[in-house]
Simulated assay, not measured.
Amino acid sequence: MSNRRPASLLRERFAALVAAETALGRDPEPERIAFIRSPAELAGLGGDRVDYLEPVVRRYGSRVSPCWTPGPPGRPG
Rank of each mutant, 00 (worst) to 15 (best):
L24H: 05
G71N: 09
S62M: 09
P6M: 04
E29L: 14
G61K: 06
P72T: 05
S65I: 03
Y60G: 06
D48G: 06
L10R: 07
L42M: 13
P55F: 09
C67G: 08
P6H: 07
P55I: 03
L17S: 10
G47H: 05
A15W: 04
P28K: 07
A19W: 08
N3W: 03
F35W: 09
E12T: 13
G25D: 06
R49F: 07
R5K: 12
E54A: 15
V18S: 03
R59S: 14
R4F: 09
V56G: 08
E54S: 14
R4T: 14
P72D: 15
A23Q: 15
N3E: 03
F35L: 06
E54L: 12
V18R: 02
N3S: 06
V50T: 11
R13T: 15
L17D: 14
D51C: 05
P39T: 08
E54I: 07
A16D: 15
S8K: 12
L10I: 14
T69S: 09
R5T: 09
P72V: 03
G47T: 02
F35R: 00
G74Q: 05
S2D: 15
R11Q: 11
T22A: 09
Y60T: 01
E31T: 14
F14D: 03
E31L: 10
T22E: 10
F14N: 03
R4I: 13
P66T: 03
C67R: 12
V56H: 12
S62I: 08
S65W: 06
A34P: 12
R63Q: 14
M1P: 10
R49K: 09
P66A: 10
E31R: 10
P39D: 01
G61P: 15
R32F: 02
W68P: 00
G47K: 01
I33M: 03
S2P: 10
P76C: 11
V18F: 01
P30F: 00
W68L: 10
V57I: 12
G77K: 04
T69D: 03
V57G: 03
Y60Q: 11
L45G: 04
C67L: 08
Y60K: 10
S2I: 12
G44C: 02
L45F: 04
P55L: 10
P70I: 00
R75M: 09
S8W: 05
V50G: 02
R4C: 08
Y52H: 11
L42Y: 10
A15F: 04
G61T: 04
P30R: 00
V64G: 14
F14L: 05
S65T: 07
L45N: 05
P76Y: 05
A23K: 15
R49H: 08
A40R: 14
I36L: 08
P73C: 05
A16R: 01
M1Y: 12
F35P: 00
P70L: 00
G71M: 05
P76A: 15
A7K: 03
S62N: 14
E12Y: 07
S38Y: 01
P72E: 15
P28Y: 00
R37L: 05
A19E: 13
L17M: 13
E41Y: 04
R49S: 08
N3H: 07
A20E: 15
C67F: 03
G25N: 08
R4E: 13
I33F: 00
A23R: 15
